[in-house]
Computed example of a mutant assay.
Amino acid sequence: MRHSKEIANALRRRGVSPENAADLTQEAFLRLLTAGRPDQTKCDNPRAFLFRASRNLHIDQIRRERCAPQVALTDAEFEAIPDDMPSPETIVFDRQRLAISAAALRELPERTRRAFEMHHLGEKGIATVARELGVSTTRAWVLIRGAYRHVRDRLREAEG
């Protein structure tokens, strides 16, 4: 307990806010607890380690802040930041379309489904799909195109 107060005070003398000093002190103690090597279970001088670790953490924090300065925002400015997360309605809609697509793929003949999966999901080229299925490249393309059309038709049926 005494060491934590000493470390926090030393950080505050360096201009660190009390809250930030407490956070850095806690992080230094965590580093001390995880610093043991297999051949050495304790640090030789824990007090020195804590002071050095807290100082290094503070320096790292200053470096990070220089690279990515923080800007104070008002509540109104913060609320005006657009959210790139999809809406709940979009998530539900997309999941429904995914379920319809999966069901449509299960309806396909095995070879057609495999051709589609290798090309679309496995990102394999038409020639590779043809070779692995033992068909011509023209036939592989016909299988893949047929699968795309089947999935598209099922999605259109669900919309209408």
Rank of each mutant, 00 (worst) to 15 (best):
residue 142 V to E: 00
residue 142 V to N: 00
residue 115 A to Y: 08
residue 119 H to F: 08
residue 123 E to D: 09
residue 127 A to I: 06
residue 129 V to D: 02
residue 121 L to V: 14
residue 110 E to K: 08
residue 126 I to E: 09
residue 125 G to F: 03
residue 123 E to Q: 10
residue 116 F to K: 12
residue 117 E to K: 06
residue 122 G to V: 14
residue 140 A to F: 00
residue 112 T to I: 10
residue 138 T to D: 03
residue 133 L to K: 08
residue 131 R to L: 06
residue 111 R to D: 09
residue 114 R to Q: 15
residue 139 R to N: 03
residue 111 R to H: 03
residue 136 S to E: 01
residue 124 K to M: 15
residue 130 A to L: 07
residue 113 R to A: 15
residue 112 T to V: 14
residue 118 M to Y: 09
residue 134 G to R: 09
residue 124 K to T: 11
residue 139 R to H: 15
residue 129 V to Q: 08
residue 122 G to A: 09
residue 134 G to D: 02
residue 132 E to N: 07
residue 141 W to M: 07
residue 129 V to C: 08
residue 130 A to C: 07
residue 113 R to F: 10
residue 141 W to R: 15
residue 111 R to V: 06
residue 136 S to T: 15
residue 129 V to W: 12
residue 121 L to W: 11
residue 126 I to K: 07
residue 113 R to E: 15
residue 124 K to W: 08
residue 125 G to L: 10
residue 119 H to M: 02
residue 123 E to H: 13
residue 113 R to T: 06
residue 138 T to N: 02
residue 140 A to E: 01
residue 122 G to M: 13
residue 136 S to R: 02
residue 126 I to R: 08
residue 138 T to H: 01
residue 120 H to N: 13
residue 131 R to D: 02
residue 111 R to G: 01
residue 113 R to L: 12
residue 138 T to P: 00
residue 130 A to K: 07
residue 135 V to H: 11
residue 121 L to I: 15
residue 121 L to T: 09
residue 110 E to D: 14
residue 111 R to E: 09
residue 117 E to L: 13
residue 133 L to T: 05
residue 112 T to S: 05
residue 121 L to E: 13
residue 129 V to K: 04
residue 141 W to T: 07
residue 135 V to S: 13
residue 127 A to S: 12
residue 114 R to L: 10
residue 126 I to H: 05
residue 133 L to N: 10
residue 139 R to W: 04
residue 132 E to D: 13
residue 127 A to F: 06
residue 126 I to T: 14
residue 128 T to M: 09
residue 120 H to V: 15
residue 134 G to C: 04
residue 142 V to W: 00
residue 133 L to H: 05
residue 117 E to C: 09
residue 120 H to G: 04
residue 110 E to V: 04
residue 126 I to L: 13
residue 126 I to P: 03
residue 116 F to V: 11
residue 110 E to Q: 12
residue 135 V to T: 14
residue 130 A to W: 03
residue 115 A to I: 01
residue 111 R to M: 13
residue 138 T to G: 05
residue 113 R to D: 13
residue 138 T to M: 03
residue 123 E to G: 08
residue 132 E to C: 02
residue 142 V to G: 00
residue 131 R to S: 05
residue 113 R to P: 07
residue 118 M to S: 07
residue 132 E to M: 09
residue 133 L to V: 04
residue 117 E to I: 12
residue 133 L to A: 07
